[in-house]
Structure formats: C-alpha cells, structure tokens
Design a protein around this nucleic acid. Structure first.
Lengths: 185, 185
DNA sequence: GTTCCTTACCTCGGAATCGATATATCTTGT
DNA sequence: ACAAGATATATCGATTCCGAGGTAAGGAAC
C-alpha cells in the first residue's frame, strides 16, 4: 500500500521509495531490501506499476517506477475497504492515513475514519490478575504499566478528537456534494 | 518477551496467555495459534519454562506454564539490552514497557527509558517532495497527513513528558541506593 | 589509476507468522 | 442420550519478511 500510495503522488525509484517508506508510520521502521524489491516486482507483474530505466543522477542507473490505472484502482480498493489489521494496528493505520486522500469521495473517507473511531471507542483493558479480572490503573504496582495506560488513554483522546472533527468536516463536504447534485438534476 | 513477561507475574496456561498477549500492545493485536504454541514449545526446549498438566477448570485439560530461572535471566537480558526495533517500533516498545518492572535495578530501567527518549528526540520528517525536501505541516494539502503529523507530535510530547518525569524519579531512587550503599561501606 | 565510498538494484536461504485444520474435554440445552 | 458450543492444545503448508551477500556504476581521494 505504501509503495502504490507514494507512487500515486509522483514517480519514484526503488531506493527513494525505500527511504520514504522507512520514515513513514510516525516512526522510523526500515524496510529490508529483501522485502522491497520483490514486492516491487510483484506489483509490476500484477501491472500495478511500470518501470523505465533512467541514468542515475548521482551513481548507478535508476528504475523509475510509475503507477498505472490498475495500480490506482488497487490502491483505492485497499483504502476503501481495509483489512481489520489496518484499523487495529497503529503502524498500519498510520500508513493508511497517510494515503487516504487518494480516495476522492469524502463519504468513503469518512467511513474509514468511522471504523477507526469505533475501534478506539471500545474500552481496552490491558492488564488482568490471576483470575482474569481487570486491574484498574490506580491498583497497578508497576509505574511503567501505569505510564503505559496513561499514555494510551491520552493519545487515544487526541486521536478521537481529531477523528470527530475530521469526520464532521468530511460529512459536511459530502452533504454539499449531494445538495449540488440534487440541485442540478 | 511477552510470554516470559506474563509468566514472571504468575503461572498461566497457553489459552490465557493468548488472550493477554492479544490485549496488550495498547491495541488488540491477536496472536495466531500457529505462532503461540510453537513459541511456547521453543521456550520449553530452551528451558525457559516448564509445563505441568492440570485439569481444566472449565473444559479441556490445561498446560500450566511456569517460568524458570533460565527464563527469568533471558527475559532480563532482553529487557536490559533490547534490540533497536523495541525502541523504534511503537508496538514492540509498548510490550517492552509492560514488562520493564521485571528489571529491578532502577538505573538499568532508566537507561532503557533514555534510549527511547533519545529516539523520540530526533526530529522526524514524514513527508518529502519530488526533490526530497521535507514538507512542513502547513504546506500539506492532505488533511489526513496534517492530522497524522498533529497526532504524532502530540503523542510524542505526551510520552516525552512521562519519560522525563519517570527517568528523574528512577535516578533519584538509584541515587538513594548508591548513597545508602556508600554509607554502609 | 587504483581504492574506497555512496548510490542503486537484486537474489537466496532461513526465520517468523499466519490461517486452516484437527483433536480432545467439559458444560449446557433439549 | 445427544448435539452444540466454549475451552484448550497442536500441527502443517503457504506466505511474508528479513539479513547477508553480490553486482554494478559513478565520484572523490590519494
């Protein structure tokens, strides 16, 4: 998803792509060559992207990669109907968010945000005692677990706040679109 | 790490472990059976844990797992000198944090927090233009990327604040220890 | 001009992980 | 008595992923 998402902005070569993917996801998570290049080849075989060799501006020749219509369609499908992991796994979610603007329909964008919002809504209980009963933060003996839950709650509230404001804005825009359409018809 | 970390609290059986690991990491990240059970077996072969069959309180018989001294040592090594991924990958970091209290030495705990703090300190630039020049949030056309960077900054500040307070407290405690020791000698 | 460093791409073997499947046990409902 | 469902453990093939290694090209240093 990150490869096609970046290529949707403008053509890139593998090496550049590698750095961009690595610095994404909020934190630096390097992607190994052994993951990146086979994936590029897989996407090429699936005709999601085309490559054309260009002389390297600094050193070795580059393979400039361009996304195709097939690739754009694939990217939009992934964004429109993401697997559950992309909602519940922070790393994946932030990757998805970085490319959600490639879905043009504000209503579809809002739907994805709503899925995330619903996930964040359900109360998470991180720690349990021997009997499986949840341990509230104030009874936690470990300051690290206490901090973990504090940070977790705080960051969740921050994201929920943003999600709500953004969803409102998107639905407003979607409403306008409907209004204009129905006015035209 | 999560398996040994949980077992260090009290003995558990695989099924229970599975639920605890899944609900950890701040968000629900289910662990597949095909991952959990082979890992348990691996840890058993490495003599990090022992198992003894007990009648299931509800249904099928359970294999109660107990951590050994070898396992405790292994856990402490992992916590004391974590791989870089445990510092830079949020998911892994939160797992580490959940068990850091199993390192008793406050100085060693503070050292790990400092590594995380230093990682969070280096300025992250998430998005770049065609020429590789960083794009500041105010120039970002995508509201999602803007939100992504806002959330990222906000959550980083929250965590940095906690890290600083906690590190101060740990060093204070470590200082007391040194003081008492030197007073005794 | 030879060595070294950086850029840039690729492949292979092994490790980690998953998903599907199978099995056994106990409780509950009918 | 028997079926259904939750509990609990285990395995296997397929997929994903990584890390080490190799190739190639250009520029800089000496």
């Amino acid at each position: 998803m990150a490869i096609l998402g970046f290529l949707r902005d403008f053509p890139l070569h593998g090496y550049d792509l590698k750095n961009r993917v690595a610095s994404l996801a909020g934190h630096v998570r390097p992607v190994a060559d052994g993951t990146l290049y086979p994936t590029i080849k897989k996407l090429e075989d699936a005709q999601c992207l085309t490559r054309r060799t260009a002389p390297g501006s600094v050193a070795a020749p580059r393979h400039m990669l361009e996304i195709t219509q097939t690739g754009t369609d694939q990217l939009r499908r992934w964004l429109r109907d993401p697997e559950q992991g992309f909602i519940t796994d922070d790393n994946k979610w932030y990757v998805l968010l970085a490319f959600l603007h490639h879905l043009e329909n504000p209503r579809e964008q809002a739907l994805v945000l709503t899925r995330r919002r619903e996930f964040l809504d359900q109360p998470t209980q991180l720690f349990f005692d021997e009997n499986g009963a949840p341990i509230p933060p104030e009874l936690l003996e470990s300051p690290f677990r206490k901090g973990l839950m504090q940070i977790h709650r705080s960051t969740n509230l921050t994201e929920i706040d943003w999600l709500d404001r953004q969803t409102t804005e998107l639905n407003r825009r979607a409403g306008f679109t409907v209004h204009q359409r129905s006015g035209e018809s």
